[in-house]
């Protein structure tokens, strides 16, 4: 039963107030894309033991989607941030680097 702070409304929300949305920062591939790129987009997901970036919706609250940087083993939350971005904020990446030097996740490090 995780808790996350919604970056939009500031509510420290219980997991039961949230809806999970899978992996964050997927890049959409539409008509005209190669089969392999489309397959990656639609089906291939990270399943890390460690740092992960996820989508959550504050479903029982303000209704907004946000993203969370979380360690799947220690459950440490390095931050939550609005979904209107294609990569994690530098501040959160720095925070992760402080504790997990050399971390990588997809294209980020």
């Amino acid at each position: 039963m995780l808790t996350f702070t919604c970056p939009y409304c500031g509510v420290h929300a219980d997991e039961t107030e949230l809806a999970p949305g899978g992996e964050a920062h997927l890049k959409r591939f539409g008509p005209g894309s190669e089969d392999e790129a489309f397959e990656d987009y639609l089906f291939k997901r990270e399943n890390p033991k460690g740092m992960h970036f996820e989508r959550w919706r504050h479903a029982y609250g303000c209704g907004k989607w946000f993203l969370a940087a979380r360690c799947t083993t220690t459950l440490e939350v390095f931050g939550t941030y609005p979904a209107q971005t294609t990569e994690p904020p530098q501040e959160i990446k720095d925070k992760i680097s402080g504790k997990r030097p050399g971390w990588t996740w997809r294209l980020f490090s």
């Binding site: 989607w65 979904a83 209107q84």
Partner: peptide, 13 residues
Amino acid sequence: HAHMEDWLQCEWW
């Protein structure tokens, strides 16, 4: 409704 909000908030914001 959630599906629409998802695409509006996360893809075509």
